[in-house]
Design a protein around this nucleic acid. Structure first.
Lengths: 319, 319
DNA sequence: CTCAATGTATTTAATAATTTGATTCAGTCG
DNA sequence: CGACTGAATCAAATTATTAAATACATTGAG
């Protein structure tokens, strides 16, 4: 077996029996890259300087030198100081296997919120970093970093004696979240009303109006499609706000509302039909450039939304 | 030398020559606590069960047993299974020294922002976790956690190839921060205007009005005192908002504005006097329960504040 | 016998140690 | 002299180790 990452029976990353304290993915990628580079050259050709190679592969010279060492070991190049020339054309067998790069760092957020909301983890649940890291198949310390980033939203907190707790979706959390959302969204509405006629939001709103009307027609059967429409609607409204703080906040807010929408199944069709009409009222007012009316319509919609969120919490707590 | 944490010449935490992978502060505290507990008992008395002791000391049984082992080693107690009785009264010399608990986790935030703002670290500066950890005298991984928590505010970000960068106080950052502040604060103003007469905010505003008037009188000499007054004023306004999201946001916002106030020294006295009057206008309108006027006054003040922030950035960038 | 207390094993969180990779700097060959 | 190499240094990522908590098994006094 050639130099490649495998897992031994204790599950640790090893290379030729030696435990690796850090993955050498960069080296692997660079090595394959350099093999490709060599393949474009005739046998016997002189290779360029280390610095040139490192720039070509997008890595440091240190990695290039490790690659060269290995290529010399495999008899692909002869390397002595500045003199390095190609001995033979590289083969497919020379390549190093790359580890799975399934690491979607942004997806961890979605998966985590999904887990919290779907399994209805109660407030003040102690979170085990080790266990979560296992279930999400990420390194414990990556998960810790993620939890730390969530702590600013008050969603999780450090325990005094170490560890983490999920502050959870209590009634207070829901109320404060809704209030926060109201403020951000009313501002967005005001900004939409002032947007120039050639702003893409108007096109988007026209599309959304059509989609809303279409769904209203077949609401009896497709009412569960509303959740996606709701998300799209609020996203369109908030897209006019170019503000990193509000955008970051809205990201979490929309996720939470999205999931809670899917929870509460009581009168779902009626609720969704009502919400469609509320959305349409907002769109109407906006297209008429009637900012006060749009704000009032949005306020009404968010009020409904808030009470839905609260009642879904109640039902959930009771069930 | 008895069992106590010291630092060897390489600066690592050691205990009797052995390197500790984790601090044993809990054990030390519990040990001293149990000594105090024993001091209240007569010599020869029987000690309660391990579980009882652990509850009393607020630690797990594991730690209690370690303490008992040590107390037996020192000849303070005789311990054999359930039989454990006090042999002699504990002495001061039996106690274990505690490591410095200078760990103010909340203070790290202030110190970090202070560093960023005081030394005018430019945008997109790579941050070295190791170096920062040294300058702030905290463990590298604590600092990493802290950076992760700041990343939600867009203040720092991960670099694609590892490490962190300070996104920094660019013009865009300042504008977006100001806009965000405006929205949060106008909401707070509206809430103050609706606050009941017995709400503590009214008392606070009355005090602040007096403080503002007093400072206005001696503005020629004490104009630099305004920075604190400004912070107090905005804090009072925002104190009526009971919302974790807004509170967390305001914490960072006020810090940033606070430091920037201290930067820009051009026309400082004039600016501060103007700001005092703007504050007073807001207080006047609020006490008259005139919400629209209060909002307009606040809007005016925040507009001034925003342009001050922007001009301080400009001066700084040029200097 | 019972059950409360102890003894032991397993797990987790904190943190040190180790390895990969980037960078710096002095030396060297053309 | 100047571009390149070689070696040393430093930081970041990741494993390994230790302290402490918890879960489980065992024992002994009533």
């Amino acid at each position: 077996m050639h130099l490649s990452m495998v897992f031994n029976n204790s599950g640790r990353k090893v290379r030729q029996g030696k435990i690796m304290a850090r993955s050498d993915t960069r080296f692997r990628e660079a090595f394959n890259h350099l093999l490709d580079f060599c393949a474009t050259m005739p046998a016997g050709a002189e290779l360029p300087a280390e610095a040139t190679l490192s720039e070509a592969a997008g890595v440091s010279r240190t990695v290039v030198r490790r690659c060269l060492t290995r290529m010399a070991d495999l008899g692909i190049v002869a390397w002595d100081g500045r003199a390095k020339h190609l001995l033979r054309a590289p083969l497919t067998a020379d390549r190093i296997a790359l580890p799975d790069t399934s690491g979607g760092r942004d997806q961890l957020e979605k998966r985590f919120l999904d887990w919290v909301l779907r399994f209805d983890v109660p407030a003040d649940t102690p979170l085990s970093v080790a266990e979560l890291a296992r279930t999400f198949d990420v390194a414990p310390h990556d998960l810790k970093e993620f939890l730390a980033s969530l702590s600013r939203f008050g969603l999780v907190a450090r325990r005094p004696r170490g560890g983490w707790i999920l502050r959870g979706f209590t009634k207070d959390f829901a109320i404060e979240l809704s209030d926060f959302r109201l403020i951000l969204e009313l501002d967005a509405i005001a900004k939409v009303a002032e947007a120039p006629v050639d702003h893409p939001v108007w096109q988007r709103l026209a599309e959304l109006r059509a989609a809303h009307l279409a769904l209203a027609d077949r609401i009896a059967t497709d009412f569960h499609e509303f959740s996606k429409l709701d998300e799209a609607f609020h996203e369109a409204i908030n897209s006019v706000v170019r503000n990193r703080f509000m955008a970051e906040s809205q990201k979490v807010i929309s996720l939470i509302f999205h999931y809670h929408y899917m929870w509460d199944k009581t009168h779902e069709m009626d609720r969704n039909l009502a919400a469609i009409n509320e959305h349409l009222a907002v769109i109407d007012a906006l297209e008429a450039r009637d900012a006060p009316r749009a704000c009032e319509a949005a306020r009404q919609h968010l009020r409904t939304s808030k009470s839905t969120l609260l009642s879904s919490l109640r039902h959930h707590a009771l069930g």
